[in-house]
Simulated assay, not measured.
Amino acid sequence: MGRISFDDVLGTNYVPSHIERCSLKASIESIVQGLSALKHVLSPLLAKRKTLTKSIRAHTALLTPIRRVPPEPIREDFPRPRVKEVPLKLGRICRVWPDITLSTASLWCAIRIPTAWNIEGLREWISRSGSCTLSFTIQIFHENSDHLSLLASYQSRWKEVVFLFRDSQLQFAQEFLGSLAHNYENIHTLKFAYETCGRAQNNIHMVVNSAPNLRNLLL
C-alpha cells in the first residue's frame, strides 16, 4: 500500500519504493501546477502593489521638510566647493535645488577645467560665480589659449590657482604668464605643477609686484 503523505520522512535518508517514487513525481507535478496558478493570480496583484508603492513615494515626497525651507538658508548651508567638485551634483538632489544651485554664486567659484572644454561652458560657469573669488586648475598649452585669456580677464578675482605645464609648452606658458598683470589682489594660493621635472622648472618666470593675501606659493 502506497503512502498517503511523505511529511514524516522529508529531510531524512528514507529510500522510497518504485510505487512511492511515482507517487512523489505526481505530487511534485501537482505542486508545480499549483505554483503556476498562484503566479497568474499574484502577477496583477504585484503590479498593482508596485503602482501603489510608486504613488505613495511620490505623494510622500511632497511632504519632505526641505520643501518648506526658503532658498536663503539652503544657500548658507551649502558646503564650500572644491576645485574638483561639480555643483551640478547638488542640483540632482530634488526638483527644487537646481534653481537654487544655479543662482548660488558661491557654488561656482571653483573649477578644474578639463582639456578641450567648450569656452562657452567656462564663460557660463564664471558668470554664475557673480563677484566671488575664483579658484581653478588649468593646463597651460596652445589649445587652451581662449580659456586662459578669459581667466586672465578676471585676474583680480583669482584666489587658489593651479597651473599645469608640459615641457613642450614652456615658451607658450612663459608668454602667457608674462602677459598677466603684476598685481594679485585676492590670490591666496599659487601652484605650478610640471608633468616632467628638471630644467623646465627653472625656465618659468612670473613677475608679482603685489599679492597681499598670498599664503601658499608652490613651485
Rank of each mutant, 00 (worst) to 15 (best):
S103N: 11
T196F: 01
L218W: 09
T101M: 09
G130M: 01
S27D: 14
E72H: 11
L148S: 12
F78P: 02
R95I: 00
E195C: 04
K54A: 12
R21H: 12
V161A: 11
L42C: 01
W125M: 00
K191V: 06
E195Q: 11
I74D: 02
R123C: 09
S156A: 08
A211F: 03
I138R: 01
L151F: 08
P73I: 02
V161N: 03
H18L: 15
G198M: 00
N144L: 03
I31N: 04
H59P: 00
P16L: 05
I138F: 08
L102V: 03
P81Y: 10
A61V: 00
P73F: 06
I126C: 03
E76S: 07
D99P: 00
G91M: 04
K54D: 12
W158C: 03
G91F: 02
E160S: 15
W158R: 01
P65D: 08
S168T: 14
N186R: 08
A193N: 04
M206T: 00
I126S: 09
Q139H: 12
E76I: 12
I19Y: 06
S30D: 09
T60M: 11
S135Y: 06
I56K: 12
C197Y: 14
L62M: 14
I187E: 01
T101L: 00
K39L: 10
I56C: 08
A211V: 08
L151I: 11
A173F: 07
L214R: 09
E29N: 15
T60I: 13
L219H: 07
V96A: 10
P16N: 11
M206P: 05
T133A: 14
P65I: 05
L24A: 06
C22A: 13
H40G: 06
S179K: 12
R75I: 13
T12A: 09
N216G: 01
I111K: 13
P79V: 03
L151T: 07
Y194G: 03
I74P: 02
R166F: 15
L88V: 12
L150Y: 09
F6K: 07
I19H: 10
T51D: 15
T53F: 07
D7M: 05
S17K: 12
E143M: 11
V32T: 11
G178S: 08
E20N: 11
K159H: 13
H18V: 12
W125R: 07
L24I: 15
S17G: 13
R67N: 10
L217Y: 07
N13L: 11
N183G: 00
A26Q: 14
S23W: 01
S210M: 05
S43E: 15
A61Y: 02
C94Q: 03
V69T: 06
S131T: 11
I19G: 05
L42N: 05
E175V: 02
A200Q: 15
H182V: 11
H18M: 10
N216E: 13
I56N: 05
I93F: 08
S156D: 10
S149R: 14
I140W: 07
L150G: 01
F78A: 07
L190S: 09
N209A: 02
N118W: 10
V96I: 14
H188M: 07
Q139G: 10
L90N: 07
I111T: 06
W117K: 08
A181P: 00
F78T: 04
E120R: 13
T189E: 10
W97M: 11
I119L: 13
E20H: 04
S149E: 09
R80E: 09
A26N: 14
A37V: 06
W117S: 09
I100H: 06
W97P: 02
